[in-house]
Design a protein around this nucleic acid. Structure first.
Lengths: 363, 363
DNA sequence: CTGAAAGCGCTTACAG
DNA sequence: CTGAAAGCGCTTACAG
């Protein structure tokens, strides 16, 4: 059933049916609208979006794009070198953060009248091509942690509005939604400081040099340092460690802490990931240290499991529902008003106080 | 840049460019192909998929559709009645199983040359409309656990090939991919039986009557019963419990077990979800029972955290990568050969032996 | 408020 | 192997 056929049946022009379908109510008299709508309902007419996209300037499709660490053709050879990385390349939705964000975004976008296309990519070029393939109305980039060059290409060469999550380039006009990682890092350290801690380890994902590579980690680290400074704790007394962002990585972290002499061992771990924090707590416990009596740990993300592990993990928590809402709303504003200025939304974070942070030993 | 402009530039007809773009190599001489390709590369020409969809019979889009438990307009009122349900309706990707499957599927579909559209739905009608909106090449239904009537509508009225995951209707010609839940239930019970257990509780998600409502749960239960039968354990000696599928639901389960008199308490819990199993273990431990010395627990799904909780959870494990591959491949086969017969793929499961199943007390 | 015409950028037969 | 014509099902100006 096509627009034309509906028009014929209702005794009006295709244009009028189009106006009814698109709810341009001011352009159609109420009587005509009802008559046409009746015919539409009778035949269960559904518009052809391809035709609509082709003849108009928009598609109503928003792309949710996510980088993969390894290209498709490299996956098999990578499997022998770094199996975990190869696995990650086969599935971009294994993490709690990204899958939750995608779920919320689909819901928000649907409510705003958009279709959601999901796409993993290795090169920015793939994203740009996708946008042009479908005349995308908009594009949301998730987890653009690593590839700065690719991110910049997407931002500068995009053929549609882009909202980038968790990443901001001051020198580029862009739309971004992030959370206040600086404040998160500050709060994490401050929470421990209030319990008397003065010997810290900052534990981040990846190698310790991630602090230089990832904006997120850097912000958290800067916030953490600021809290130390405000409490007159010399940063030299504290260490920075890096482990793979997984429960297993966390266990390595815990074992590493256990291997240290008690006199140099930190009394508080400020960790940039709950997975690592939880893994670390487990390893510390099985190594004979009590959490939080002997050592305190604070995580980041507030994973669902954070509240259940034993002891329940104290962690920095962000509102992913609000983040997705903000991203979708920002994108829609930009789509509706192409002249809109660059904008950056930063959502606040809070500490979910639970039981892995306690009084520093001997205080 | 359009096909036509490329054609003009290359001095050929649009049709020839089309044949080059679509790699109909037999229809173009190698010399022409090269010349045209050079122009395509020079201008970075990208085909317009809307135009292609409109003029051809296919769109290359596959829809990944997932039911939500509450319709959009009911969410706010539902929030007061059942907050957890309202939350679930706002995000279909909170569970590990579904988000992992979506991640794998996107990757497989991309490799097969399809675009992935993600969509949550409350009524089958939404899915049918979406299919027609975009002339979908195919559709994969995830987690169709609950709404049989809606599932049947999708299967019978779909305008494109459909693969349904984890659900099969013997009376309908359909394509389905599932895992061997019967065998999973059997293996779970058998594992405990081998450790001398004879007093069981079967713990499922939702109310105990889920066994009648969900094919998956029913299959697992039947397999479980078969294992009891094979070991000459009267099913009357065993109980069936139901809890919400979450860590919190699992804690309720654990507390319920703790409230029972030791003489009637089961010595082994066969649980249809790792979340419940892990929550239950945590509650049992804090209630003073030792796992597995006093009570054994076996879960289902092999969540990433299952291996890390303490003690590591013994659980039934399925290969989600293989499942996604099978679903994507099956769908492609059906798209390429519309006359293909109905088919059902059932993947096997295995037990991940860890430390929550041990000798039955007093054996 | 309503309509006739043109066109969006491809592909599908049909010729040659 | 290559091309000219028609058409997919809408929307966008432009008239009236």
């Amino acid at each position: 059933m096509t627009l034309k056929e509906i028009a014929k049946e209702a005794g009006v022009s295709p244009m009028t049916v189009s106006n009814v379908v698109n709810r341009h109510d001011s352009k159609v008299s109420e009587a005509t609208r009802k008559r046409v709508q009746a015919v539409i309902d009778k035949y269960g007419y559904v518009p052809n979006m391809s035709a609509r996209s082709l003849s108009s300037t928009r598609s109503r499709i928003v792309a949710l794009v996510m980088p993969v660490p390894v290209s498709e053709d490299q996956v098999s050879q990578m499997a022998t070198i770094d199996p975990a990385l190869a696995e990650a390349a086969k599935n971009v939705l294994t993490g709690h953060y990204i899958s939750t964000m995608v779920g919320f975004l689909e819901s928000k976008l649907k409510n705003l009248g958009y279709y959601t296309m999901l796409r993993s990519y290795y090169r920015a070029e793939e994203v740009l091509e996708l946008q042009r393939n479908w005349k995308m109305d908009g594009c949301i980039v998730l987890m653009p942690q690593i590839y700065d060059a690719e991110n910049r290409l997407i931002l500068t060469r995009s053929s549609c509005p882009v909202v980038m999550l968790d990443r901001f380039y001051p020198d580029l006009p862009m739309l971004s939604v992030g959370s206040d990682d600086y404040h998160g890092g500050y709060l994490a350290a401050q929470t421990c400081i209030r319990y008397g801690h003065r010997k810290f380890a900052f534990v981040c994902t990846g190698a310790p040099d991630m602090i230089d590579q990832s904006t997120i980690i850097r912000e958290r680290y800067q916030g953490y340092l600021a809290a130390l400074r405000d409490a007159c704790i010399p940063a030299e007394d504290c260490m920075v460690l890096g482990f793979r962002d997984s429960l297993t990585g966390g266990r390595s972290c815990g074992r590493h802490i256990l291997s240290m002499k008690p006199e140099v061992r930190p009394t508080a771990l400020v960790v940039t990931s709950d997975s690592i924090a939880i893994g670390a707590v487990a390893a510390l416990k099985s190594g004979g240290l009590r959490v939080p009596e002997d050592i305190s740990v604070i995580g980041y993300d507030d994973l669902p499991m954070a509240a259940l592990v034993s002891p329940p993990l104290t962690t920095v928590s962000q509102d992913l529902d609000a983040k997705a809402s903000a991203a979708a709303a920002l994108l829609k504003m930009r789509i509706d008003d192409p002249g809109m200025a660059a904008d950056r939304i930063i959502l606040d974070v809070k500490v979910a106080m639970r039981q892995t942070v306690g009084r520093a030993p001997g205080t």
